[in-house]
Write a protein that binds this DNA or RNA. Sequence first.
DNA 1: GTGGTCTAGACCACG
DNA 2: GTGGTCTAGACCACG
Lengths: 122, 122, 122, 122
Amino acid sequence: MKFDANIPIYIQIMDYIKKEIVTGRLREGDKVPSVRELASELQINPNTVQRTFQELEREGVLETRRGMGRYVTKEREKIMELKKDMSKDLLTHFIAGMRALGFSEEEIKMLVEISLSKEEKA
Amino acid sequence: MKFDANIPIYIQIMDYIKKEIVTGRLREGDKVPSVRELASELQINPNTVQRTFQELEREGVLETRRGMGRYVTKEREKIMELKKDMSKDLLTHFIAGMRALGFSEEEIKMLVEISLSKEEKA
Amino acid sequence: MKFDANIPIYIQIMDYIKKEIVTGRLREGDKVPSVRELASELQINPNTVQRTFQELEREGVLETRRGMGRYVTKEREKIMELKKDMSKDLLTHFIAGMRALGFSEEEIKMLVEISLSKEEKA
Amino acid sequence: MKFDANIPIYIQIMDYIKKEIVTGRLREGDKVPSVRELASELQINPNTVQRTFQELEREGVLETRRGMGRYVTKEREKIMELKKDMSKDLLTHFIAGMRALGFSEEEIKMLVEISLSKEEKA
DNA sequence: GTGGTCTAGACCACG
DNA sequence: GTGGTCTAGACCACG
């Protein structure tokens, strides 16, 4: 995993883990690696991983079982909500941005289609 | 203008000015306010405005005429390029994000249409 | 280190650091002093050092590792390029200047040799 | 005449005029254009031209004859001295710079010859 | 401890 | 009047 130097690493890992969960690569109840494990794997400071996990816990995405490690929440609703929130943020940010640049509704739709079709070929 | 506390002010002003240019509210060759003027208008420190302008100059968006103030670049190409780059960034970021959340091409298109139509009513 | 009052300090430090790198006194991957360290050593304001480092980063000469300090780029190519660019600038400026003063090719060569031999004795 | 945005215009004009004199395109006793004339020709502020001329006078390169305009000094020595000083500055700066980059005497000579021969072909 | 951002304000060169 | 540089120092996020 490569990190963008301008974004806090803990944010980037949070985002990564959330995506793993939302797409089902990490499922409800799955155990996540320990702080030390993940820190050594990603070559980063354990403090940073610790912070990542604490934030994810605060958001209800992960849960700690004392002495047994951390696990993805078992609540399906939480996971659905996560996906909804993340996509909504993306959409809002995208459309507001395009609007601010002066693009019309039709232009935005068209540009999305073009981008998707380009992606397809690549 | 209100500032988001989590994003550097100079980035927010840079973005704002770029949008003014891209949408034509600021045109090629237009004079932009002086450092002191804008600083007092936005109620921020002149140094922060100074930094904003210097970054925009580095990007070729503004030009300084010594002792006469700063001006929007006269190069139309630069402005077209700006719009293209900014929209491309938004698109790429949006589509990559949606893909990472597991959305299909069709779902993305549909969500964009829904968002745009909601916006219309609001 | 003494500063020439007519040249911005940050430019002078940039130049100094580049020379340290190009001549190998600072090597790829070496840690450079922290902003505060260098500021106190050179008896100048931390902001001035900050600016120096940010410019060098923008040029790809230094890299920041978040929370761990700044380092000379590990890319050897970048360093070779640096030396080439700096010497090319010197050469171009020198020869264009001498030409503008009306010196012939032969005169330029001779003056360079004389300067070098004087230097030797001194 | 195009101006480098990073160097004071008055310095650039001073340099230009000195070169005109040193190469004989402006000769001893020649009249130079009036402040207003040169300002309108170069599209710059008359204050800037005024300053340029004053500095050149201070250096003994120009002389004012009341009511008759400004003239290149008649003293040949002054002109010779000018050429010598300007070339010496170029040489010193060039060689010190190359030395600081770690080039040897032989390398410097060689690079000068290469630059001169490239120039010839271009 | 380290860098990033920002405020407050001085001083100067330039036009 | 305008921008450029610098000082002094605060505060915070990050690791």
